[in-house]
């Protein structure tokens, strides 16, 4: 009997230790990343960091201003294209997605959601960069918009599904047209969820690197037109991190600091907003 009791105790302790240690192991990288990025990033930050061009590789002067500018332009443009398409696709999926004729569309939104983002980059390279014979801000923004669309479509659909059916039934009972009911009543009730989805998608594309490599390339200069290459924070981190110059590596950490701040802030914003609801 005693041995059975001991065995049960050992089993329980083992299980607890396993669960506890797993959690610790997962949390350590989070803190290590935040700690290292702050520690190394803060050294890079001064006024020049925000307002100067990177300058020649290896020089310790200069900043990452064009990368900040580039990320802002790319994300804004991608959102202008991606948000409306994403939200309307989400509305379609909510209203008609269960019907048989729309199976193909909801299936392709799912598949688009699953695509590795670098594949989207390749696609835009072949269809936009190659015919235009130039890497361009436009191509980068298009790639990011394509990454964005399925994310927003799915979060919009989900938020709409969460609206109690009584609300939409009340609208129908009033005799207003279906589309007004969806847009002004159901979508309006779900707007927090929809906005959260948009913010998360913006956070996601702000951190995207892979689809930008073969679309907007990166640049050492200011933005000079939609048809010209453009820099981004993520491209700068990727290109500078593995350079043999300490000054370049420092800029990479500085850019990572800025990017991480934005990514964590946007995500925490959504989390705290989600709770108030």
């Amino acid at each position: 009997m005693i041995s059975l009791r001991v065995k049960k105790k050992v089993q329980n302790t083992f299980l607890f230790l396993f669960a506890f240690l797993s959690t610790i192991i997962a949390i350590i990288p989070l803190f290590s990343i935040i700690f290292e990025v702050i520690k190394n990033g803060i050294e890079a930050i001064n006024l020049d960091f925000f307002i100067q061009l990177p300058g020649p590789l290896g020089e310790s002067i200069g900043g990452i201003a064009n990368a900040i500018q580039g990320t802002l332009i790319l994300v804004t443009l991608a959102s202008i294209i991606g948000v409306p398409i994403g939200v309307i696709t989400g509305i379609y999926l909510y209203e008609y997605g269960k019907e048989k004729k729309s199976t193909l569309i909801s299936f392709s939104v799912d598949l688009l959601y699953d695509l590795p983002s670098i594949v989207v980059g390749i696609f835009v390279y072949i269809t936009v960069v190659s015919p235009m014979r130039s890497f361009s801000a436009l191509a980068g923004a298009l790639a990011l918009a394509i990454v964005m669309i399925p994310i927003i479509a799915k979060t919009t659909e989900e938020s709409l599904t969460l609206v109690p059916p009584t609300i939409s039934e009340a609208g129908i009972a009033l005799g207003i047209p279906k589309w007004k009911n969806i847009v002004f009543i159901v979508l309006n009730s779900a707007k927090n969820g929809v906005l959260n989805g948009i913010v998360l998608a913006v956070a996601r594309i702000t951190g995207e690197t892979a689809p930008l490599i073969m679309t907007c390339l990166g640049s050492n200069f200011w933005f000079s037109g939609m048809d010209k290459p453009i820099n981004s924070l993520t491209l700068l981190i990727w290109r500078y991190a593995m350079q043999p110059y300490p000054s370049a590596v420092k800029k990479a950490w500085g850019a990572a600091f800025l990017l991480l701040l934005v990514a964590l802030a946007l995500n925490l914003l959504v989390k705290s907003g989600g709770e108030r609801k």
């Binding site: 990025v37 702000t206 991190a241």
Partner: peptide
């Protein structure tokens, strides 16, 4: 905290991974 692991851009994982 676990969800925040998903919020970190992958290029930052790479930077941290490399150094």
């Amino acid at each position: 905290m676990i969800d925040l692991l998903a919020a970190i851009p992958s290029v930052i994982y790479g930077l941290w991974g490399f150094f």
